[in-house]
Design a protein around this nucleic acid. Structure first.
Length: 189
DNA sequence: TGCCTGATGTTCT
DNA sequence: GAACATCAGGCAC
């Protein structure tokens, strides 16, 4: 039996697509929150826009670790973003979770965000705030509580839209952003 | 409705 | 010392 996350060890852009439609289980106190991943972006060490491009540092070492772990970084002085580490150990690749769709406990998430509707989780820093993901979860193994990844059946190709990434200044032409067709929670069109 | 900018800290040069 | 995988509020149109 191979590792539960052996599917995450493939090409990072393929894994980014594979993660669409999968479920994240977040345990907050007594609540078990489920969200569906609806938008992702792939990052790889061969790619100038990636944190791992310049090699292993104290910050990026998690990206070079085994697949199925969480890479959380702090940015712009006030925001956290979370990535799922992919690829074989020693390769610096990860998938940024850009947007999720809440499947339960919506009121709790709205309360945490002081916002309602799609504004609760339609951005990488927004979903981290909603799910209380911060640096303490950096390097966390996603096969265990309090944050677990459930691999659902892969989505059919025609449900997935591919585009270039957003919010970055390098390698903006690389088409490594993926999202679910006709979903309200994607961050920008 | 849509652009512009301030907030704010970590990381790297 | 500058850049940064962002967000939300404010102001102009």
């Amino acid at each position: 039996m191979t590792n539960y996350f052996s599917e995450l060890e493939g090409q990072v852009d393929q894994v980014a697509k594979r993660l669409l439609g999968c479920t994240l289980l977040r345990r907050l106190d007594v609540n078990e929150i489920e969200v569906k991943i609806v938008e992702t972006e792939a990052y790889h060490q061969s790619d100038t826009a990636s944190h791992s491009y310049k090699g292993i540092t104290e910050r990026t070492k998690v990206m070079f670790g085994p697949a199925g772990h969480l890479y959380v970084y702090f940015t712009y002085g006030m925001h956290y973003c979370c990535n799922i580490v992919t690829g074989p150990e020693g390769e610096g690749s990860a998938v940024l979770i850009r947007a999720v769709e809440p499947l339960n406990n919506l009121e709790l998430l709205e309360k945490r965000r002081h916002r309602s509707g799609v504004e609760v989780t339609n951005g990488p820093a927004k979903l981290c705030q909603a799910l209380n993901i911060s640096k303490s979860l950096n390097g966390h193994n996603l096969s265990s509580s309090p944050l677990q990844l459930k691999l659902n059946d892969p989505l059919p190709e025609d449900e997935i839209i591919t585009s270039t990434r957003i919010g970055i200044s390098n390698a903006i032409e690389v088409p490594w952003r993926f999202y679910i067709k006709d979903n309200n929670y994607i961050s920008r069109v």
